[in-house]
Simulated assay, not measured.
Amino acid sequence: MIYHGNRIKLKEGISQEQIEQALEIIHEQGRTIPAVKSYFVGREYGGAFEWNAFFVLEDLEAYEEYLNHPAHTASERFALPLLEKFEAYDITDDPDPGFGAEVARLQRRHYAADPELVRLVSALPSHTGSSALPDLAPEV
């Protein structure tokens, strides 16, 4: 099982309407992507971020389906320009020591297929974690 987490801090000056739209589009991922077993979106307290979203995925095949689903790419397109800080991370019970490398490969493939996404991610003031823009030179 994979718990894919996203930590979000919005830019100053984002309107309440934009916040509500961003949260709705994140919820839409959980409701419409078949690979998502369950999800949670909520406010973060006590940390450097404002919002968190967790998506529960069965395995790496489901992770790839999640990454490439139109609801996920629509969320990226809408939300990334609103963010000051973004961190993605993955928690798994998969004992395979190659798990992290496989996640990195899936992320590289996701970025390599979408130059506009690379532009949006590159424009973020802060982006860390498992979905941080990897070097696209390695084999995808």
Results as ranks from 00 to 15, higher is better:
3 Y>V: 14
4 H>P: 04
7 R>D: 12
10 L>D: 05
10 L>G: 05
12 E>D: 15
15 S>V: 07
16 Q>K: 13
17 E>K: 12
18 Q>M: 06
18 Q>D: 13
19 I>L: 12
20 E>G: 10
26 I>N: 00
26 I>Y: 02
31 R>K: 14
31 R>L: 14
32 T>V: 14
32 T>K: 12
33 I>C: 05
38 S>H: 07
39 Y>H: 15
41 V>T: 11
47 G>E: 07
51 W>M: 12
51 W>F: 15
52 N>E: 14
54 F>W: 13
54 F>C: 08
56 V>H: 10
58 E>Y: 06
60 L>Q: 13
61 E>V: 14
62 A>G: 12
62 A>Y: 06
62 A>E: 05
67 L>P: 00
67 L>Y: 02
69 H>Y: 11
69 H>Q: 08
69 H>K: 06
70 P>H: 11
71 A>Y: 02
79 A>E: 13
79 A>T: 14
79 A>N: 15
80 L>Q: 02
87 E>F: 08
89 Y>S: 09
94 D>W: 03
96 D>R: 07
97 P>Y: 09
99 F>P: 02
99 F>M: 13
101 A>C: 02
105 R>M: 06
105 R>P: 01
107 Q>N: 13
111 Y>H: 03
115 P>H: 00
115 P>Q: 01
116 E>W: 00
118 V>E: 00
120 L>R: 11
122 S>M: 04
124 L>Q: 05
125 P>N: 09
125 P>C: 13
127 H>W: 13
131 S>D: 08
132 A>H: 06
132 A>I: 07
134 P>Y: 05
134 P>D: 06
136 L>H: 01
139 E>S: 10
139 E>T: 14
